[in-house]
Write a protein that binds this DNA or RNA. Structure first.
Length: 384
RNA sequence: CUCUGGGGAUGAUAAG
C-alpha cells in the first residue's frame, strides 16, 4: 500500500487527477493515507469543491484529512469555513492549531491568532515560529521579539524568523546582532541577512555573505540574482542568470520582471517563451508579472494570450492573478472585460477593488471609480 | 528511520 500511495502521490504532483482516481480505485487495501493523498491532489490542483465532496463522503477522516481541508479553505480566503471545520473536528493536534493560527495571521487577524496560540496546549517550536512570523508580517515587531524571548527552546528556524522580522523593518543592526549570536548558520540564514543588506544598498556586503554560504541551492542563487536586480545591477543579474547551475520558476520570473522593469517588455515576453520551451511551468507570480508587462506595453494582444494560458492553468482562480487581469484589461482599454473578470473573483481584496478603480481611471470613468469606495466598504474592505 | 496535513530564506499584483 505504501508504494501504491507513493505512485498516487506522483500522479497528484503531475496534476493527473483522472489517473490518480483510477489508481486509487485499484489499490487493494487503501489506507487512510491513500485517501488523504487523493484529497490533497484535488486541493493542489485547484479543485477545492471536489476535495470537499470527497471529504464529506469519507467515513472517518483522520486529523490530517481535517487539517488539509481546513488549510485549503484558508488558502482560498474562506477563513470562516476553515474555522467552522476546525471547531467541528473531532480532534486537533499541534499541526491543526498551527494551521489555524497561520490562517488568522494571513488575514491580518492577529488577535484571534494569538488567542488560539495561547489556547494551544503543547506548543512545539513550529507553533512558536508561526506566531513570531504572524507578528512580523503584521508589523508587530516588538510583540514578535517579546514572544521570541519567551520561547523556551529556540532553534535555528525561530532565529531566522526573528531576523527576518528585523530585516523586513530595515533594522540592519539588530538583524546583524542576532545573526552574530547564532552558533549554527545554514544558507537560509545567510539569505535572510543578504536581504537585509540588499535593502540598504549594501551590495558588496551581501555578495560576501553569498560567498560564505555553506551550500548554495537554487534559492541562494535566486537571492543573489534579486540582490542585483533590486539594486539596479541589470548586467550582473543577467550574468548570474546565465551562470547559475540551475534555474527554477522563481529565477525565470525574477529575470522576466527585471527585463520589464528595464523597459524591455518585448525581451521579457521572449524570455517567458524560452522558459516554457525549457519545460519550466509558469506559476501565479509569473502570470502576474507577465500581465503587468502586457499592461505596461498596453498590448491587448499579448495580454489576451496570457489570459488564454492562465485559463489552462490551475492558477485561473487565484485572486492575485485575477486582480492583475483586471488591471491589464483596464490599462488596455477594455473596461467591460476588466469588469467581467472582476465578477469572477470569489474573494475580492483591496487590490481587486483598486485594480477595478484603476481600470475605470484608465478609461476615464472617474465617477464610476469613486463609486467603488462605498462598494468595497460595504464588503468589509477598508481603503488604505 | 523519505506514503498524506503545519513553522524560517528568493520572484509578483493598485495609485504615485
Amino acid at each position: 500500500t505504501i508504494s501504491a500511495n507513493a505512485l498516487l502521490g506522483a500522479f497528484s504532483k503531475k496534476g493527473k487527477l483522472t489517473e490518480a482516481r483510477e489508481h486509487l480505485e485499484k489499490i487493494a487495501n487503501p489506507s487512510p493515507v491513500s485517501f488523504n493523498i487523493m484529497l490533497r491532489a484535488y486541493i493542489e490542483n485547484g479543485h477545492l469543491h471536489k476535495a470537499r465532496n470527497m471529504f464529506d463522503k469519507m467515513s472517518n477522516p483522520d486529523v490530517a484529512a481535517w487539517t488539509q481541508v481546513i488549510q485549503a479553505y484558508s488558502d482560498h480566503g474562506e477563513l470562516d469555513e476553515a474555522r467552522k471545520l476546525f471547531d467541528r473536528a473531532p480532534n486537533r493536534d499541534s499541526v491543526a492549531w498551527t494551521v489555524m493560527v497561520t490562517a488568522y495571521a494571513q488575514k491580518g487577524n492577529i488577535h484571534e491568532a494569538r488567542t488560539l496560540f495561547d489556547r494551544m496546549l503543547d506548543k512545539d517550536p513550529k507553533a512558536w515560529t508561526a506566531m513570531i512570523k504572524a507578528y512580523s508580517r503584521n508589523e508587530r515587531l516588538l510583540d514578535a521579539r517579546r514572544l521570541f524571548d519567551q520561547m523556551p527552546v529556540k532553534d535555528m528556524m525561530s532565529r531566522t524568523s526573528m531576523i527576518t522580522a528585523y530585516a523586513r523593518k530595515g533594522d540592519l543592526e539588530e538583524a546583524k546582532s542576532l545573526f552574530d549570536e547564532c552558533k549554527e548558520r545554514d544558507s537560509v540564514l545567510y539569505t535572510v541577512m543578504m536581504k537585509a543588506y540588499s535593502q540598504h544598498g549594501k551590495v558588496r556586503e551581501a555578495k560576501a555573505l553569498f560567498d560564505e554560504m555553506p551550500y548554495k541551492n537554487v534559492l541562494c542563487w535566486n537571492s543573489l540574482l534579486t540582490l542585483y536586480v533590486k539594486n539596479g545591477y541589470f548586467e550582473e543579474a543577467k550574468d548570474v542568470f546565465l551562470d547559475m547551475p540551475s534555474r527554477d520558476v522563481v529565477s525565470w520570473t525574477a529575470m522576466i520582471k527585471a527585463y520589464g522593469d528595464n523597459k524591455q517588455g518585448k525581451e521579457a515576453i521572449k524570455l517567458y517563451h524560452r522558459m516554457e520551451g525549457e519545460g519550466v511551468q509558469p506559476d501565479h507570480v509569473t502570470f502576474v508579472c507577465m500581465l503587468e508587462i502586457c499592461a505596461e506595453l498596453a498590448s491587448l494582444q499579448q495580454g489576451e494570450a496570457v489570459h488564454r494560458r492562465i485559463r489552462r492553468s490551475k492558477y485561473r482562480n487565484f485572486t492575485t492573478v485575477l486582480n492583475a487581469l483586471v488591471h491589464m484589461y483596464g490599462k488596455c482599454g477594455c473596461l467591460s472585460e476588466a469588469k467581467a473578470v472582476f465578477t469572477e473573483i470569489r474573494n475580492p481584496d483591496e487590490f481587486s477593488y483598486t485594480a477595478l478603480m484603476s481600470a475605470c481611471y484608465h478609461n476615464e470613468q472617474y465617477w464610476e471609480a469613486l463609486q467603488m469606495v462605498p462598494h468595497m466598504v460595504q464588503q468589509g474592505i477598508l481603503p488604505n
